[in-house]
Design a protein around this nucleic acid. Sequence first.
RNA 1: GGGGGCGUAGUUCAGCACGGUUAGAACGUUGGCCUGUCACGCCAAAGGUCGCGGGUUCAAGUCCCGUCGUCCCCGCCA
Length: 616
Amino acid sequence: MINQIDYTYKDRVWCGKINEKYVNKEVKIYGWVHRFRDMGGILFVDLRDRTGIVQVVMSSELKINKLSLEDVLEVVGIVKERPIENINPNIATGNFEVIAKEIKILSKSEALPFMINEDYKDIRDLKIDEATRLKYRYLDLRRLQMFKNMYFRHKIIKYIRDFMDNEDFLEIETPLLAKPTPEGARDFLVPSRLQPGKFYALPQSPQLFKQILMVAGIDRYFQIAKCLRDEDLRADRQPEFTQVDIEMSFISKKDIFLLIENLLDYVLNNLGIEISIPFEVIDYNYAIKHFNSDKPDLRFNYPVKKWNNSIKINLNDEDFDINQAYYIFFKNLVLTRKELDKLNEFLRQNNLKFLYLISSNSGESFFKGSLVKFVDINEVDNYLRNENQFYNGDYIVFVISSKNYLNELILIKNYLIENKVLKPVKDFYFLWVDNFPLFKVEEEKVGNKLIRKISPEHHPFTNVLEEDKDKVYMIYEKLKKNPNIIYDDEFVKEVLSIRSLAYDLVLNGVEIASGSIRITDIKFQKIIFEIIGINEEDANRKFGFLLEAFKYGVPPHGGIALGIDRIIALLLGYNSIREVIAFPKTQSGTCLLTKAPSEVDLSQLKELGIKLMEVN
RNA sequence: GGGGGCGUAGUUCAGCACGGUUAGAACGUUGGCCUGUCACGCCAAAGGUCGCGGGUUCAAGUCCCGUCGUCCCCGCCA
């Protein structure tokens, strides 16, 4: 019998941590049968726990029942150093093995729905359908890779809490049963039994509560907060996701930037990732103008340049307008023959007009591509030479054009990135995008009429850049005089030109945080509400408690929220945040493990006063 | 709401353009052999409503229509 008396969880010896200090000592280990090799008289078992794998050697005298993959074992044995010829350099414990004295099968496993011991060499290429993985998520999570993801996530959150605590922030839990908010994303609704006909909403974010906490004098708040939005899913969007929600009083934008830079520096350094702070800051307008994006990926910074329309391209194609022609210039881009062929194929398939320069072995360079017949090569060559300081035969140039010129150029860029032809200037490129507009103007078709509407670009509590404040009063007055002025394009331009105190943090072209300095002037807040079409009555009904709170001494405050799922996925190199979430939903919002959402008993509905109706 | 990809053994895939043998492979599973393997090896076997429904056809995994599931994208996500 295995002696249990003096053994506590503190004495646990992990499979992956067997090392020289255990040699010739008796250990008790627990784990799952990762793989086994039955040689007849001797049986090798790779026993796995979350830390790794160790080889257990069993002689035939042990007479244990037949093993299956993923049986749960308790093994008592002596750790031995392996003879040199038997060392396995592929695993961390490869110098050692456990010679079993006693073995207990704690639990048997049936044949598995998919293999989880496949993470070796070329078997790594085997892919399991994600739906199958999600249905048996507990098996999927047993894989060391998935455990590492969960561990990384745990550590990130732990270091965030350490840092925030150190900076005098309080973690405060805000309610999950909250007030429905008609603005923004669709709410998940929760019917109230005690008040039939009324509903709670699951919070899209703790926004209003954290601002109330500032009024409450907490001053520095944060929360690892679940946020819930009933919108369509994507690889980087789940209906519930986690944010590091932060709010501070008596600060400016600079303080938020500083805090987040220090936070990420601290957390990532603890995880062995070096980053440089402070992060670059670019203006929203600059980003849009030069990258056609409010979240540019500056790991691959290739500016788009306008084509000089005096350099003729004699192409008869109604989609091609030389006055709309742009080109992108990839520095130091050298393609192999194979890469070039693949790129050609890609460009042709996407029907792109292009021209590129290649250099031959003899040092000569010449142009190729679908536009080559339609240009004067010498003229183009001279032009590019003058325009681009570092022009030489190693460079490749594309000229394309259409109404969607930027999208097409970005398509090429993305293709080159995906095929690893373009190399990132660094692994993790953080970037602040600052001075977002305060408003956006949306158009909606009602019948065959186009309705224009002003709405907040960030959210209605976002403050304005001080020097643009007068503009807000101006458009407010104009709208009051004539609500139809919204259909005047000059007026819309004016509305869009108003800058806010809102900012995003971008990592490798992905928005990972978003925040703003808030409005604390009740009068100004009311004007904003009016501009975005929320009248006084609506405002009081929806946000009256916030306006009321602001009457009793509100400190200037602002904050930010970081999307933890996205950050972790990016740091670990995943496109999908599902790889870093233990139990994610599919694109149709179902949990394949539990089959949620599901139908409910009629009695449950009755209690809530809810009757289902047909919806087409 | 829209566009696209995928769905064949437990798993990963081949077969489908151009319809025509008994639908194959690898891994896994089951049984057997093997005392130094480590992606062990060897021998043998079982395992399929080709997602589901309908249509075309003498004949459908293969062609057509619909539907369901899943993945990617647009819309949407203050």
